[in-house]
């Protein structure tokens, strides 16, 4: 039993059990609380099909898809943040800060505004995939650029990465501005809600597509523990230790782009989960990526579902964008990180 995830100690196993229990509790609360509060027995009978019509509809048509979407998005953002931080040896490599999410946003915005004309040409079955695919393409473009930045020196300085992120986000902002300018009223409304980030649009088709895309990428990312550990001694030493460095970097770039692209297409750009979850995981479980990856995934789910729970219940039935909650958690955390971890070391991690 102790060998699961390579866990050496009972203490590590207890930590995972505790994390899992917290996520389960938040998930149960996601199903139970909202504008209409349900008891746990009402929730379970709704899931089993024994409940009354209204609570069954609330649980199976609104809250369950939302819960599953939250799990997929939280996992995707946390694992790609963890992998990007690991491979770039850089604690600030959050998909949002370095512009990867911005790339996805441009892809998605272009689809929302320009996609109608194109979608009519496509068979009905593949139309739901248009948004994730274009978000993925935007992501992949930015990710490959960021990795190119890191190719020569082996490690990228935080300053380079963040400045590149500022530039990419500025370009992305301008591109989205153009989309807003040329959009019609309905597109503008879709676009505005989408860019604020929300799990509110969850329906079963979207959940199925996102879960399919994200779970493939997440499963592959979760196996990269040893590789990410080796990146911590530098790319050359990682190669000396038997790692195919170029192939691993390419895989991580591709998988993060798929995961962030899929998540962003479904829920809009949601910041800071990819930054905060891996850091919390390292604080709790130590530096070994075999443990940090699964712990990040659990924390990503917990943070995202917790934020969703908060925004849904703070002024019901109104629903502030989830990005507000994640930024309220993530912003101060980011500042704290700058003040403590970076102190005395300048901006070089």
């Amino acid at each position: 039993m102790k060998r699961i995830f390579g866990l050496q100690t009972a203490a590590g196993f207890k930590l995972f059990a505790a994390l899992g229990a917290v996520v389960l509790a938040i998930a149960a609360a996601e199903l139970a609380y909202g504008p209409v509060s349900l008891s746990l027995s009402e929730v379970s009978s709704a899931i089993l099909g024994w409940g009354d019509a209204s609570s069954t509809a609330i649980v199976t048509q609104i809250r369950a898809p939302r819960l599953l979407l939250g799990i997929a998005v939280g996992t995707a953002l946390a694992l790609s943040g963890c992998a990007l931080q690991g491979v770039l040896r850089n604690p600030l490599a959050d998909p949002g800060l370095i512009g990867v999410t911005g790339g996805a946003s441009v892809g998605a915005a272009a689809t929302i505004v320009l996609g109608d004309a194109l979608a009519l040409e496509l068979p009905r079955e593949i139309r739901p995939y248009l948004l994730p695919v274009s978000a993925f393409l935007g992501c992949a473009l930015v990710t490959s650029f960021v990795f190119r930045l890191s190719r020569h020196a082996g490690t990228t300085s935080v300053a380079t990465l963040i400045l590149a992120g500022v530039a990419i986000n500025a370009i992305a902002g301008a591109a989205i501005g153009v989309m807003v300018y040329i959009s019609d009223d309905r597109q503008l409304r879709d676009l505005t809600f989408w860019t604020m980030g929300s799990l509110g649009g969850a329906n079963w088709t979207m959940v199925a597509v996102t879960l399919a895309v994200v779970s493939v990428a997440a499963a592959a990312l979760a196996t990269l523990g040893r590789a990410l550990d080796l990146f911590q001694i530098g790319e050359r030493a990682a190669f000396h230790s038997g790692l195919n460095v170029e192939r691993t970097k390419r895989n991580i770039a591709l998988l993060s782009a798929i995961a962030v692209g899929g998540a962003t297409a479904a829920a809009g750009p949601i910041g800071f989960i990819g930054l905060v979850a891996p850091h919390m995981a390292r604080l709790i479980i130590g530096p070994s990526h075999r443990l940090v990856l699964p712990a990040s995934a659990l924390l990503g789910m917990g943070l995202l579902l917790g934020s969703d729970l908060a925004v849904r219940n703070i002024v019901p039935p109104a629903e502030p964008p989830i990005g507000l909650a994640t930024s309220l958690i993530g912003g101060p955390f980011f500042l704290w990180l700058l003040l403590t971890r970076m102190k005395g070391r300048g901006l070089v991690a």
Binding site: L230, Q232, I233, G234, R236, A237, S241, G242
Partner: peptide, 28 residues
């Protein structure tokens, strides 16, 4: 990696591994 090992001129470490973890890291 099973045939040759290399100690670089300036080896680096970007994580908070314990000495024993670092010592076993390159086992291929």
């Amino acid at each position: 990696a099973t045939r040759r090992a290399v100690l670089e001129q300036s080896p680096t470490l970007a994580a908070t591994f314990k000495v024993k973890q670092l010592a076993g890291l390159s086992i291929a």
